[in-house]
Design a protein around this nucleic acid. Structure first.
Lengths: 226, 226
DNA sequence: AAAGCAATTTACATAACCTTTACATTGCTT
DNA sequence: AAGCAATGTAAAGGTTATGTAAATTGCTTT
């Protein structure tokens, strides 16, 4: 994870660099608005930490110009006692703010939250739910096993989707019947067994290890990655 | 811009509806988590404002379930004094949060900030769309398949246009009926099937590969480049 | 009113696919 | 080991959605 830090407080920059580095981030720092901006415009970061009060051009202006070309998430940092216009920041496209002096742990939490959110959005933009070699994209109803496309029928897709959403947990046949087939499970209804059998067959063409485990008397489980 | 508001505070809902309406948004409101969720899952909004404390199911659960199928940006609203786990909300895929009581201008700024960001992301995604051999010019209503002009009727053009704008995604017959034909899809209405059949025939004169795929029980999908 | 189109409906063929049946197998209990 | 219930699955059956030619309707133009 790459973080760009634009702040003229040398001491703070050093502290943060050390702290974030020790948590697995790689940090690049600039101390002026103008130079920081041109660097940000030409390089890709996962998050930018941007001080409001900066030599060169101020943080708001940096954000405004940056937003004309980049969507990189920005957390704005405000100096102690500084009168910060949060609404203005939001309108310019800031993603979060933090008032100095701030707790390092809180900064870390926010950076992580933002990077995770970006990941989530990208994942959702691909529309995929990926786990242990099984990937489903609800939007297009496509399914992949170990990156090989498999053709599932509507019901098969829904069942696998349900299992994937409850990965590692037992899903009862009753639940599958009600949620996917839309009816109560009748005593000798073997329909779900058949669907599961067919799904397994299709997955097995690409993945050797059995993914859908039967829990006798209880239901089915989609095994987790471990 | 369409906003879905899920909040059980009737008074707040009325105030917000009035305020946001006056700024050009159209508002739909639900007062329970369960009903709000099922509506959100089946309709498209630009932003969802979601209260955390809700009758039915709580806001976190609504968000979690919604995120399984929809990308709609969500701003979470927290009641006064409520202990809100912000990081948890972000992890579930919330896009922002706001503590009550909040300033209306701030809410508006955040809604606008989010819709703008989403637009940007969508724009970026569209720019990377590859050519798939189908080209429509809405202005002159001309259609081309592999650069050969094809003659489409008005309805055919509209349907193909809709599919193209949702390239790679399933478009249901219901959606086509409502958006193109301007009426609800009736039980034995085969009109859309015929239009699709005719469009396919015309495309097939110039492109061998089937472009419009049927997803049984779900709708049609215009395939991307691959 | 006839002609010309486009949209829709009808009618039937076909394909997809869900379910049932039937029998084999597994796993648990006694 | 026997017995029983649950599960696996191939094959058959039946239902529903879809494809499409052809007829019909509806609208506009001539």
């Amino acid at each position: 994870m790459k973080v760009l830090l634009i702040d003229d407080d040398i001491e703070l920059v050093e502290l943060l660099t050390e702290y974030l580095s020790s948590h697995g981030f790689s940090i690049t720092a600039y101390h002026r608005g103008d130079t920081g901006l041109s660097h940000a415009q030409t390089h890709d970061y996962d998050v930018i930490l941007l001080d409001v009060m900066l030599p060169g051009i101020d943080g708001f202006e940096v954000l405004k110009q940056l937003r004309q070309t980049k969507l990189t998430p920005v957390i704005m940092l405000t100096a102690k006692g500084e009168d910060f216009d949060r609404i203005f920041g939001l309108e310019l496209g800031a993603d979060d703010y933090l008032a100095k002096p701030f707790n390092h742990r809180e900064l870390l939490a926010r950076v992580k939250a933002i990077t995770r959110r970006i990941e989530n959005i990208q994942q959702l933009a691909n529309n995929s739910l990926e786990e242990n070699g099984i990937r489903l994209t609800p939007h297009t109803r496509e399914a992949f096993a170990a990156e090989n496309k498999i053709e599932l029928t509507g019901t098969e897709f829904e069942i696998l989707f349900l299992l994937l959403n409850n990965q590692g947990e037992i899903v009862s046949k009753e639940a599958i019947s009600e949620q996917v087939l839309g009816r109560k499970l009748a005593p000798f209804d073997r329909s779900i067994d058949m669907h599961v059998s067919n799904i397994r067959k299709k997955i097995a063409e690409h993945i050797e290890q059995e993914k859908i485990k039967t829990v006798r008397g209880a239901g089915y489980i989609l095994l987790g990655s471990a």
